[in-house]
Simulated assay, not measured.
Amino acid sequence: MLSFCFLLAGAQSGTTNIMADPQEPIEGENVTLTPATVPANSISCRWYQGTDPGKNLILIYYLPPLTWQTTGPGFTGRETGNSDCSLRITDLKTSDSGVYTLEMERPGALEMGTADIVVSEVVSKPTLSISSNPFPREHKDSLQLTCNTRATRANVIWLLNGKPVGSSSRIQFSNHNRTLAIQQVLRRDDGNYQCQVFNKMSDGLYVPVIYGPDPPAIVPSKNAYYEHSDIKLFCVADAFPGVRYTWFFNGKSCGSGAELALRDVSRAQSGNYTCQAINLLSRNTASAALEILVACE
């Protein structure tokens, strides 16, 4: 990132534009700050960090025919001046971010300019970790995920199934967005989580939310049949993971599985048929009942 501002230092002062190459420097790389023009008869180029000329002097480069350089307290050994009044900084650190000011002195006049550079961190691929139950139960458990990154100024973005995760009364971010906490998970929180740090994306971490069974449905809902009919009843309940179905006739077990088949029924088979669904992981249950009447033909 690069922004410019210009300073005016009296009636005999001018301003110049300073360009950075590259415009978005990264730590470990180099950057060169170059003024757009160097006034004729310029004597020296004075570079310092910040906007106060009395502080953080980096160097003064004297132009031909003198061509020599003196350094100040802001010099780190990584800065070099040049005859075009440019400043080259090598092996950039994030601490090099900030405003740099150039003063170009010539007889009776001073030309100035500033450049603001931001040195971005080198970011490796982040990783995800989970510090809560990896199989949270709907309405009961919480979920906590951490985006692990060494970036100290990380801008962390969370995604669920490729879409940004926003904060709410249930969903909170902490530790500079590195931690995602979801209270009392819902089934819509199920899915593939990722975190993004700058332009680096973590691998996905799939978090299944254990829910259900919801109240089952018995189909068909028809409840009157003639003797010697064949009856097929189906039980359906929404849940994750799958459910086990058990059928009861007047309170006694009469079958298992989603389908109950009754063949050549008699009047003695009139009564209450109940389907019970049990979540195989949470062991939660839900039931539905159908009263069936078998009549004479």
Rank of each mutant, 00 (worst) to 15 (best):
P65W: 09
P65V: 09
L66Y: 09
T67I: 07
W68N: 06
W68S: 04
T70W: 00
T71R: 00
P73E: 05
P73Q: 08
P73N: 10
F75G: 00
T76C: 04
G77C: 03
R78C: 10
E79P: 01
E79H: 02
E79R: 01
T80K: 12
G81Y: 00
D84H: 01
C85K: 03
C85R: 02
L87G: 02
L87E: 01
I89T: 04
I89K: 01
I89C: 03
I89V: 09
D91H: 15
L92A: 13
T94F: 11
T94L: 13
D96E: 13
D96P: 14
D96S: 14
S97Y: 02
V99A: 14
Y100C: 02
Y100R: 01
Y100G: 01
L102R: 08
E105S: 13
E105P: 02
E105R: 11
R106W: 05
R106F: 10
P107A: 11
E111D: 14
E111H: 10
E111Q: 13
M112H: 04
G113Q: 10
T114F: 09
T114I: 12
D116N: 15
I117V: 11
V119P: 03
S120E: 14
V122D: 07
V123H: 00
S129A: 07
I130W: 02
S131A: 15
S131D: 15
S132Q: 01
S132F: 03
S132N: 04
N133C: 02
P134F: 08
P134M: 08
